[in-house]
Amino acid sequence: MKKVILFGANCGKCKKAERIIHKVVNDHNLDIEFLKTEDFETMAQHQVMYLPSVLIAGKLVFKGVIPTEKELIKHLK
């Protein structure tokens, strides 16, 4: 099971990124452990400097951009 961490805040871009992740996971019935964190200390631990950022299976795949469904599928499958 892949672990997906979304680093985000309460802004429109971060909320959209979260919606897309949920949609892809549901549409493709993916077995994913998902976590969204707004905690700056956790971001500092992972040295995340842009929001939203998405960490998939330990790799920082998206930095400061909203992923598309197609891109997410490629990394989550």
Partner: peptide, 16 residues
């Protein structure tokens, strides 16, 4: 061109 919500993580990233 950053979203304003990135200002704190950027600040931390710099001082860190």
């Amino acid at each position: 061109p950053f979203c304003s919500c990135s200002s704190v993580p950027l600040f931390i990233g710099f001082v860190q």
